[in-house]
Write a protein that binds this DNA or RNA. Structure first.
Length: 763
DNA sequence: TGTGAGTTGATTTTT
DNA sequence: TCAACTCACA
């Protein structure tokens, strides 16, 4: 046997060697998924598949880099394209930009740029938008795009004021983007999906070019990504997807769990491989995770088979206050590190929301323990970095109005809000970009003489900078920084913040220099900006760093640590209060806890407190209902009432500390509860249950309505919760027609056919 | 136009 | 708690 297969288990080997046809790899946590993917690629290469025919799509650059690295060591010198969906789409779109009305030098807006643009769009359409925040509108638009609903197909659900606003703002937002020759993250996907849908030639070309497509973390794909993947795996359905429905934690970003749950329906000839062995965690940790997740309904039944020994009991700890919680954890870290039992990098603290990190930072700092926070304020998101990048963006794409407004008065040049508004009114009248409008400022009557001079000076500055456009990035950046006076603004200041900003800018220049070295072919500006937009990932998280890691549960996905502390497992925090009334969202929160638990290799502490200071005020904290989903009899309970009943989870308010307010009341919850999927477009009368149907609807096709008489005994059917099953018997008729279905995973269930979401499995 | 005090309102965030 | 935004004044 060749060495690519030698070290694999039989299940892993199945997944690696199955090359032709659709493949679904259900990979539990710690099951060696990355190994399987990389070995699969290496195996294909060994079998003579050309590297150009393989496409591997991931969600993060980090995952892609890691895979590329590992494939490289297995199969040297055969470069396979591996990267994120967004990068793949960006590259594709560069070469076909004109087809969607863009120029090839389009700018990719990040979340912040997009939000600014939404604000501008709101200003144009809404007289009084007081009732809905730009943030909500942005989210609704993003939601629509993730569901492949373009602005012309957007229909608000009836009676939703937010929906009505979105209906007006969405097209204007698209206009602004187009006028600026810019796209947002979601557009990258939407444009490519549109191209594939509208041009069968492009679709067939790509389908043909990429004979073997792999998608990692398939449970996180949204409908638009689904459309892309399906389109390029049509004639050559050699599509392998890996994922774990239990680790889907990005539903709020539009991830569609149905994609993975119904993969078998989309590709009936699919081969399913389950990787259930867990090589990461102790048996006890696996068991806790397994019991917890079994409380979810929308999933594929799966157990974690522990391959490690029993290990230490998982601890469930109640502390009096958040401070005590943090102190206890910090003390334990100090004790174990001092005793030489553990290194600092063995420890990780996970919390649901960033705002909770403070106490832990304080506790660690007080003890002199180094720590790192993952994904705090990202480098590229910093104001000073975004400003400098905006100068570069404007140089690369002069039509970028967003970049223009960002920097036109930074450092201050006497061009204020009023001038900018007048300039922008002029630009709109003449249908030109702001930079061109600036060149005409002198002839705009409403603009005062003094302001016009200031604007003209800025235009002149721009032209001077533009002369350096073909310089190396390092030189261009230096030119920008000195000519604009931007760097001096911070250097001349004594404030320590400003000094730090100046240092960050120096770091940016260094990044530019490195980029120059890596891309000696010149024309690096566009590529550098694309990198800056899509490679947010300066991932300062270094495994090797000798320090404790603090991060959100979301950030923890894909990582592992010997010792894990999951803190603040309390009602209103995990699950977050807004998930409260929506069972799907509660399940997602439960999966989040599942992800956290399964990161732990040896030791796991789950904790909550009785009073927590949060957002300034102290509250009695209620233990999370998820704690009741844990096998508490088999866990070590610490800090519970010493009355012998191990029921410290029953809520008692005796322990309310001084200064604590009353616990959350129902009214408070109701007031904060957001509507489900705000701005989600209205769906037709039929219940759309499968991804394929949703896609058809999004694309404006009529959805085949399943009438109850298309069912018959013996037919294979699919159900959103119970998945695949077979009709054993049918009784009654018309609206009262009932079917008894035997589900593969869930056994027999009975349905009223006219009401049920059952659908026949297409063959 | 630019600045300081006051108000408000808060998840998670692969790209 | 804290940062982002508004509004009044210099």
């Amino acid at each position: 046997m060749n060495d690519v297969l030698a070290t694999l288990t039989s299940a892993q080997r199945d997944a690696v060697t199955f090359m032709d046809g659709p493949l679904l790899i259900l990979a539990g946590p710690g099951s060696g998924k990355t190994r399987v993917i990389t070995h699969r690629v290496a195996h294909m290469l060994q079998q003579g598949v050309s590297p150009q025919q393989i496409l591997a799509l991931t969600f993060t650059n980090k995952a892609a880099d890691e895979m590329r690295e590992r494939v490289r060591s297995l199969a040297p010198r055969q470069e396979v394209w591996m990267g994120t969906f967004h990068r793949f789409c960006a590259q594709l779109l560069r070469s076909r930009a004109e087809m969607v009305g863009l120029a090839p030098n389009f700018t990719i807006y990040d979340a912040d740029d997009s939000l600014r643009t939404v604000k501008r769009a709101i200003k144009e359409t809404e007289k009084d938008a007081g009732f809905c925040s730009p943030d909500q509108v942005m989210r609704a638009i993003s939601w629509a795009k993730n569901n492949f609903i373009t602005h012309d197909r957007y229909k608000p659900s009836s009676g939703s004021p937010l929906g009505e606003t979105v209906k007006r703002v969405y097209p204007v937002y698209q206009d602004l983007l187009l006028a600026s020759n810019a796209v947002d993250f979601d557009d990258l996907l939407v444009y490519v999906a549109t191209l594939l849908k509208e041009s069968d030639e492009i679709r067939a070309d790509l389908d043909d070019a990429y004979r073997y497509v792999m998608v990692d973390e398939y449970q996180d794909t949204n409908l638009t990504q689904y459309a892309i993947v399906r389109a390029i795996s049509h004639h050559h359905p050699n599509l392998a997807v890996t994922g774990d429905p239990d680790q889907s934690i990005y539903g709020w970003r539009g991830a569609n769990l149905s994609n993975i749950l119904e993969f078998e329906n989309d590709y009936p000839s699919v081969r399913v491989v389950r990787l259930e062995d867990n090589y990461r965690s102790t048996a006890r940790i696996c068991h806790v995770a397994d019991v917890l997740i079994s409380h979810n309904t929308r999933r594929k039944e799966k157990t974690l088979i522990a391959r490690q020994g029993g290990g230490r009991q998982v601890r469930l700890i109640r502390y009096a206050t958040h401070r005590e919680e943090a102190d206890a954890i910090a003390d334990r870290v100090v004790a174990e590190a001092a005793a030489g039992k553990r290194r600092l990098c063995d420890f990780a603290v996970f919390y649901r929301i960033n705002a909770l990190s403070r106490v832990f930072e304080d506790a660690l700092r007080a003890r002199g323990v180094p720590y790192q926070i993952v994904s705090g304020v990202e480098f590229w998101q910093r104001k000073e970095i975004k400003d400098v990048v905006a100068y570069l963006q404007l140089l690369c794409n002069p039509r970028d109005d967003n970049a223009f407004s960002r920097i036109v008065n930074v450092p201050t040049r006497g061009i204020g809000k009023t001038t900018l508004e007048r300039l922008s009114a002029h630009a709109r009248r003449r249908r030109i970009c702001l930079l061109d409008a600036a060149r005409e400022a002198g002839v705009v009557e409403s603009i005062s003489k003094r302001s016009a001079v200031a604007v003209a000076k800025f235009a002149a500055l721009y032209d001077r900078l533009a002369e350096g456009i073909s310089l190396s990035l390092e030189k261009l950046m230096t030119l920008v920084l000195t000519e604009s006076g931007y760097l001096a603004m911070y250097q001349d200041s004594d404030a320590p913040d400003d000094q730090e900003r100046a240092a960050n800018i120096t770091e940016l220049v260094t990044a530019g220099r490195e980029f120059d070295v890596e891309h000696p072919d010149g024309s690096g500006l566009e590529a550098f900006l694309e990198q800056a937009a899509l490679v947010n990932d300066v991932d300062d998280w270094e495994e090797e760093n000798e320090c404790v890691t603090l991060m959100t549960l979301h950030a923890a996905k894909g990582l592992e640590f010997p010792v894990v502390f999951i803190v603040a497992v309390e009602q209103g925090i995990l699950p977050v209060e807004r998930a409260r009334d929506d069972e799907d969202r509660v399940e997602e929160e439960r999966r989040l806890l599942f992800v956290g638990i399964t990161r732990a290799k040896e030791d796991l502490d789950i904790s909550f407190v009785r009073t927590r200071q949060f957002r300034g005020s102290s509250r009695v904290a209620i233990p999370s209902p998820f704690l009741e989903n844990l096998p508490r009899d088999e866990m070590e309970l610490v800090g519970f009432a010493a009355n012998g009943r191990n029921d410290g989870l029953t809520i008692d308010y005796d322990g309310a500390q001084d200064g604590a307010d009353a616990p959350w009341t129902d009214e408070e919850f109701d007031q904060t509860a957001a509507p489900v999927n705000p701005g989600m477009p209205q769906l037709p009368g039929v219940q759309l249950t499968t991804a394929a149907d949703m896609l058809a609807f999004a694309e404006g096709k009529s959805v085949s309505q399943s009438s109850s008489d298309e069912f018959e005994t013996g037919m294979a059917v699919i159900h959103p919760e119970y998945h695949i099953g077979k009709i054993v018997s049918i009784s009654g008729s018309g609206a009262k027609r009932m079917a008894t279905v035997n589900f593969v995973e869930y056994g027999q269930k009975r349905f009223l056919l006219s009401k049920s979401p059952l659908r026949p499995v297409r063959r």
